[in-house]
């Protein structure tokens, strides 16, 4: 661990919905420039955790800082440096790709160009197509492109490649690697082992709202005494990681 100020620092986060505990004492320290995976089955608390980091949900207990800022209190500042792709978010259905691009770019002082964004996610041919006419995978790629519009220093991607075809998935991985080279801190919520293994510097394994381990992918495998990350996951959580999709 470096002595540098962490890009994201979550301390003892708690969140419950009614009598169901979603996140139970989660602490994470994510370094600047790191690609950090959050892995777990459905209901492990992954999305709730990143939504608290993004300032979309108020923790019942604990605190989060993002580049030293409080995501809820310093909302205006945090939104300048944070890009978020939400797991289930729809965009204005009757607007075209180019119009949505123009809208989201207008929110930032120095946005990436539309051309660059469309190229990053491979949607150059779809400029004039309405959002509601795009396939699920294309909608997802557009949503990722919009998360990159403001040149974020921290990027949260919830279910990056779920629903993408293999070609689009590889293209998205290349995009993430490109962003890592630019020094962007990336939090990747995933249940795709191959993706985590290829992209992430470290992975937090979540189960039932708690952090079981934080290790590099190879470290998780070693910790579990397993042959690969899939087996390590089963060994550590006692659960099968369901296939993405």
């Amino acid at each position: 661990m470096t002595t540098e100020e962490p890009a994201i620092h979550a301390e003892h986060l708690h969140k419950r919905y009614g009598d169901k505990i979603a996140v139970d004492d989660v602490s994470l320290r994510i370094d600047p420039g790191e690609v950090f995976g959050i892995l777990g089955t459905n209901g492990a608390g992954k999305t709730t955790t990143v939504e608290m980091i993004a300032g979309l949900r108020k923790p019942d207990g604990g605190r989060v800082t993002l580049l030293g800022l409080d995501p809820r209190h310093d909302r205006g500042k945090v939104r300048q440096v944070l890009g978020v792709q939400l797991q289930q978010a729809y965009l204005h259905g009757a607007l075209t790709v180019a119009e949505l691009m123009g809208l989201y770019r207008s929110f930032y002082p120095d946005p990436r160009s539309s051309g660059e964004l469309l190229e990053l996610v491979g949607l150059e041919e779809k400029r004039g197509v309405r959002f509601e006419k795009l396939s699920g995978g294309q909608q997802q790629r557009l949503s990722i492109a919009l998360a990159l519009a403001g040149r974020p220093r921290v990027l949260i991607l919830d279910e990056l490649t779920t629903g993408l075809d293999p070609r689009a998935r590889r293209q998205m991985w290349a995009t993430i690697e490109h962003l890592r080279d630019e020094g962007v801190t990336i939090v990747l919520v995933s249940h795709a082992m191959e993706e985590v293994e290829r992209l992430c510097d470290r992975v937090a394994l979540l189960d039932a709202g708690r952090v079981l381990a934080v290790e590099p992918p190879a470290g998780l495998v070693a910790l579990a005494g397993a042959q690969n990350l899939d087996d390590a996951f089963v060994a550590l959580t006692g659960k099968q990681l369901e296939e993405a999709e």
Binding site: E5, P32, L67, G76, H92, L95, G102, L103, S106
Partner: peptide
């Protein structure tokens, strides 16, 4: 990572773009 982060509210251009987008939706 030490650059000062400023709050910059979306300007007139963002408001206009949003109004045009809402008008297109309608």
């Amino acid at each position: 990572m030490s650059t000062v982060i400023e709050t910059r509210r979306p300007g007139v251009n963002a408001w206009l773009t949003l109004v045009v987008c809402e008008a297109k939706m309608v």
